[in-house]
C-alpha cells in the first residue's frame, strides 16, 4: 500500500479518468493528426508557416510527415496540375485508414484563378475531401482553425463502429 494514501476516486488524485472507448479513440485520433507535407504552390508556404515556431502546429499534435504511410491527414496546399493528378491519387491510396483530406486554398478547392487546360478544377475530382479552406492563400490561422474543425469532425464520429472507407465513387 502506498504510504501517501492516494484517494483513487478523488478527482485529480491519480491519472484515472472514466470515459468511453469512443471518446478515448477519438481523442487519440483527433489530437495526433500527423499531416502529410503536400505543399504544391504558395499555399505550401503558409502551411510551412503554420508548422513553424510562430504558429506552431506541434501543440495540436500535428506533425508533418514526409511519408503517406505515417500520416493521417493530407493537406493539399496549392495548385494541382493535371500532370500531378495521378500522383496525388497514388499517395492518397498509400495512406492508412482512417484518413482525412484538407483542401487548402482556392486552387485546391476549385482550380482558383487557373481556369486553364493544365489545372485540375478542384482536388475533389480526384480524392474525397473532408474540409475546404477558403483563401488565396489562407493565413496560418485559417489552417489552424481548419484543423480544429477537423478535430471536431473526428470527435463527432462513432469510433467503435467500423468506419466506412471514403471513396470518391
Amino acid at each position: 500500500m502506498a504510504q501517501h494514501k492516494v484517494n483513487y476516486t478523488q478527482d485529480g488524485g491519480l491519472p484515472v479518468a472514466l470515459t468511453s472507448i469512443d471518446k478515448i479513440v477519438n481523442w487519440g485520433r483527433s489530437n495526433s493528426l500527423w499531416a502529410m507535407t503536400y505543399g504544391l504552390a504558395c499555399c505550401g508556404i503558409e502551411m510551412m508557416a503554420a508548422g513553424a515556431s510562430r504558429y506552431d502546429f506541434d501543440r495540436f499534435g500535428t506533425i508533418f510527415r514526409a511519408s503517406p504511410r505515417q500520416s493521417d491527414v493530407m493537406i493539399v496546399a496549392g495548385t494541382l496540375t493535371k500532370k500531378h493528378a495521378e500522383f496525388i491519387k497514388r499517395l492518397y491510396d498509400q495512406m492508412t485508414e482512417p484518413r482525412w483530406v484538407i483542401s487548402m486554398g482556392s486552387c485546391a478547392n476549385t482550380g482558383g484563378m487557373f481556369n486553364t487546360y493544365a489545372t485540375v478544377q478542384g482536388v475533389d475530382r480526384i480524392i474525397p475531401v473532408d474540409l475546404y479552406l477558403p483563401g488565396c492563400a489562407p493565413r496560418p490561422e485559417t489552417l489552424q482553425y481548419g484543423v480544429m474543425l477537423l478535430q471536431k469532425k473526428i470527435r463527432a464520429n462513432k469510433a467503435g463502429r467500423a468506419q466506412k472507407a471514403k471513396r470518391l465513387m
Partner: peptide, 24 residues
C-alpha cells in the same frame, strides 16, 4: 485556353477510366 475535350477529361480518364465521367 480552357482545354479541349481530351484536356477536360484527362485526369478522370487516366485515374478512374472513361466510365467514371458520368459519376464525376
Amino acid at each position: 485556353l480552357e482545354g479541349d475535350e481530351f484536356a477536360a477529361w484527362y485526369e478522370v480518364d487516366k485515374i478512374y477510366g472513361k466510365e467514371a465521367r458520368d459519376i464525376i
